[in-house]
Amino acid sequence: MWRLWLLRAAQLIGSLVGAVVLATLLATASHPSHGVSSFLSAFLAKLLAVLSGDFGQSATTGASAMTAALTAFPATLQLLLAGVIVALLLGIPLGVFLSASRTLRAAAPLMQIIAATPVFVAALALIWIAVRVLDWNETSQASALSWAGLMRSADWSTALRAFALPALTVGAAGAASVQLSIRRAAVRAWSAPYRNGLRMMGLGTFDIDLRYAVPDVVAALLRDAGEIALALISAAAVAEWVFHRDGAAVLFLKSAAFGDWNVAAAILFVFAVIKLVAQFVCLAVSWFVAPDEGV
């Protein structure tokens, strides 16, 4: 078992090193360099700097790229965190409901008809419904709201509304992944030979589900954490843009548009780290929930 986890940890470190190299390449490639050797020396110099956490300076503001990225990240992390909560709150019941019977399991892929809506279209639709149907004032204009702002705000409901729509947008995208992961795992667990075997040996269905099927499903959900994180990050980028929230994703878009690659590389690197670490941690937790030699 220890060998397995050493291997996993080595893979994580390898991926993180890969992310560093990728970010360095991006930051270097944007600077004009003449010939392979000058590119290589620029790359190596940059790599050393990046390894010490220095991504260089922003081409637009002149500030440190990493500082600029890290200043923008709290807002994005809040959005991601809220998205995770919404995704679990929506996705788990939906996944469980859609795996409850054979008919529902067969009908569940029809979910994709709803999931065919791109995130930005869904976000615009949410705003339209909020303003035109629910008569919320134009939430799309309420910019840069954070938890801190929300706490200070006198008008709680307005502030909450301003935060609710982006969180719902990101959460819905995550929920689609969560329910799919649950359904896949549930189908596997429901048709596994051990269910009938343990029943024949004298365990009740409730016992089997609670002790064995549910941990299997939870572990499978945790193993899919990487994919879910990608869906959430992607949705967060769109949501920040649509809802005018000043977060890391919007900063990334602006940096990419203005060719400020030091900042873009720093943000991309942090996103990759978030995904890789979340995946590793969830994988480790999944092993404790339902150990599996193959994982």
Partner: peptide
Amino acid sequence: PGPHANVLNPHASVLSQLVLIIARK
């Protein structure tokens, strides 16, 4: 059952599952 019939959950120890079965029975 036979040892090849996969009657036990693959993610839990054999001992714990057998003990639970005996306890319930």
